[in-house]
Amino acid sequence: MTDINATTTGSASLGVAGAAEHPAVTAQGAALSVRHLVKQYDNASAPVLNDISFDVPAGQVFVILGPSGSGKSTLLRTIAGLEPIQGGEITMGGELLRQAQSAGKLRSASASDSTKVGMVFQSYDLFPNKTVLGNIMLAPVLVQKRDKASVQAEALRLLERVGLADRKDAWPHELSGGQRQRVAICRALIEHPQVMLFDEVTAALDPEMVREVLDVILELANSGQTMLIVTHEMAFARAVADHVVLLANGSIVEESDHPQEFFDHPHTERAQQFLATFTYDRGQRQS
């Protein structure tokens, strides 16, 4: 785990201590730091997220595992700004991103927020009233006020990268789930977010389509994008993670900088229990 050096220069990726350890610091990935995060719903008896703290160094892939209801999605959503937090704070590249709000209401998103965090959801909903290209171009033009021609050029490059350049004029309903999800990734990436969040993005897909989406994420990981991924695809998690965290009942149960070791020899019993749910043993036949 590295500490975050608070030398901010406006561009959040610079001035991060530990850069020597992680040479792949790019203009795209910033470091994320979560400290004592607490999230509790109004009429709940216990917090969904209970004093969570962790660091994600710039350009690293952080995988969050855990049983359902452990708060994984909620964690991503608080980072994305979709849910308010009741305690703790989240900083990105040394700058404060989210903090506890006394009132229950969220501040409305500002244009600068859109460059910080990008998120891809489990339901691959694109805007149905726009083509693939339209979907990708809408936000950078409207929110980031970028020039249309350059946005279009970049959009086409992104589509090329995920293998969908020939579908730029297609409508969402004409695409398969996997294709739509890849477009959703482009849509998020084109805003140059410093951190990308993936919330079980393949859970709703047919098995054949899972691969094409995960391949895109793998490629993205190699380009140095800071990412937090919530997934159930264990083989994928094993391959892509730089750091692994197991969340259960709102707390971090185990974490590791060496994912291979975590998957092969988890330290805590809870982790062992969790990983065991993914392995099958037929047992002895009664004779």
Binding site: A80, G81, L82, S108, A109, S110, A111, D113, S114, T115, V117, G118, M119, F121, S123, D125, F127, L138, A139, L142, V143, Q144, A184, R187, A188, E191
Partner: peptide, 14 residues
């Protein structure tokens, strides 16, 4: 769908 509104929000739409 709520997800549409959330996607827009995360993309930075006012």
């Amino acid at each position: 769908p709520r997800v549409q509104l959330e996607s827009a929000r995360v993309l930075g739409f006012s």
